[in-house]
Design a binder for these strands. Structure first.
Lengths: 191, 191
DNA sequence: TAAATTGCCTAAAAGGCTTAGGTAATTTCT
DNA sequence: AGAAATTACCTAAGCCTTTTAGGCAATTTA
C-alpha cells in the first residue's frame, strides 16, 4: 500500500489551510485525515493530540505574521513604520482568517516563550523608538497598539464594520493617522 | 418522578454560569444536562440545538453588558462618561469571562439586529456627542473605541499583560486618558 | 539480504450531538 | 373531582470526534 507521506510539518501546514477555509475552531483531526485520505488514527503517529495540532498551527501563524511584520518594517521609521506594521497585521488577518484566529490560541508559558510572540513585542518597541517615549509611556503604548490592532482586526473579521459607511479601510487609515498623532504628542521633552 | 423544572431561560442562565466557570467554548449540552442531573435528550425540548444554546448565552451577555453600560453612563458626560463606559466593559469581562467571550459569538443578521448590539453602538455615539465630532470622524471614533475596548479586554483575558510591569489597570487608565485627549483634539471648530 | 524502524492500518472505548418515540406528571376542562 | 390534553423528561439509537492499543507492510539501515 502506498504511503501518504505525512509528517508533523505537512499536517500543520494543511491544518492551517483548513483553518483559513473553514475557521480555526472547526479544524479537527478527522477533517485533516479526510484531507489526506488516510485513517484518523494514522495522524496520531505525528501529533500527540488535537491540542498539539492547534498549537502547531498557532506557532506557524505567529511565525508567518512576525516575518511579514519584519519585512514591512525593514528600512522604515516613524509613521511610515507604524502604518506598514499595522497594514502587515491587518492584511495577514484578511488573507488568513483562520491562521489569524490561531494566533489567539492560548499557549502554555513554555511554548509561548519559545514562540515568535516575543518578536512581535520587540517590533512594536522598535516602532516606538522612533517616537522616543519615556517610560512607562512606552509600555502603555505597546499595549495600546496591540489592543487597537487586534481589536480592529477582530471586529472587522466578525463583520462589525461591514454594514455602514464609511468603509473599513478608510477607518483603518484614520486610526493609524491618529495613533501617530497621539504618539507624537507623547515625545519625551528635550533634556 | 419529580421534574427538574427546566426552561429555556433557566438553561441559558445556567449555560452562562458554566461559561464563566469553564470557558464559553467548553459549554456543552451534555455538561448542562449533568448540571441539572437530567438526561441530555431532555434539553432538546427547550433548545433546538447546541448552537441555539450558545446564541442564547450570547444574547443574554449582550443584554447584561448593555444594561451595565447604560447604568454607568447615566448622568455622566465627556471624559467621565468615557471612563465609566470603558470600565463597565472591562469590569464585566473580568467578572464574567465566559459571558464576555459569548458576546463575540457570530449571530446571524436577523438575530443580531434584534439583539442589544445596536444599543452598544448607540451608547458609544452618545458618549461622542459630548466631544462634538464632525462626520465622518464620529464613525471612525466609534470604531476606534470599539477596537480599543475589545482589543484590550481580549488581550488582558488571554494573559497578554500579566507578566510585566506596570500592571494592566494602570495601562487601562492611561489608555482612557489618551483616548479622551485624542477625541478632544478632534472637536469640530466653532462655526 | 536480513534486521530494524517507521507509517499507516483495524479495532474499540468514551464522550458529544441529535432525532424518534414513549411514559409519567401536570394542567385544563367539564 | 375526574377525564382529557398537554408537557416534561425518559430510553434507545445513530452518527461524529478523540484517543489508545496492537498489527502488518513498506522502507531504511547494516
Amino acid at each position: 500500500m502506498a504511503r501518504a507521506g505525512l509528517s508533523k510539518q505537512r499536517l500543520i501546514r494543511a491544518g492551517a489551510e483548513l483553518a483559513d477555509e473553514v475557521g480555526f475552531d472547526r479544524v479537527t483531526v478527522s477533517a485533516l485525515a479526510r484531507r489526506f485520505d488516510v485513517k484518523v488514527a494514522s495522524l496520531y503517529s505525528h501529533l500527540r493530540n488535537s491540542h498539539d495540532l492547534k498549537t502547531g498551527i498557532a506557532l506557524l501563524a505567529l511565525e508567518e505574521l512576525a516575518e511579514r511584520a519584519a519585512d514591512a518594517l525593514a528600512g522604515r521609521a516613524g509613521k511610515d513604520a507604524l502604518a506598514a506594521f499595522a497594514n502587515a497585521y491587518r492584511d495577514y488577518a484578511g488573507e488568513h482568517p483562520g491562521r489569524y484566529a490561531a494566533t489567539r490560541f492560548p499557549l502554555d508559558p513554555r511554548t509561548a516563550a519559545a514562540s515568535a510572540g516575543g518578536r512581535h513585542a520587540q517590533m512594536t518597541r522598535a516602532i516606538l523608538r522612533g517616537y522616543d517615549l519615556p517610560e512607562p509611556d512606552q509600555t502603555h503604548a505597546v499595549r495600546l497598539l496591540g489592543s487597537v490592532f487586534h481589536g480592529f482586526v477582530s471586529l472587522e473579521a466578525s463583520g462589525g464594520f461591514s454594514h455602514s459607511a464609511p468603509d473599513s479601510p478608510e477607518t483603518w487609515a484614520w486610526v493609524v493617522d491618529h495613533l501617530d498623532a497621539l504618539l507624537r504628542s507623547l515625545r519625551a521633552p528635550e533634556p
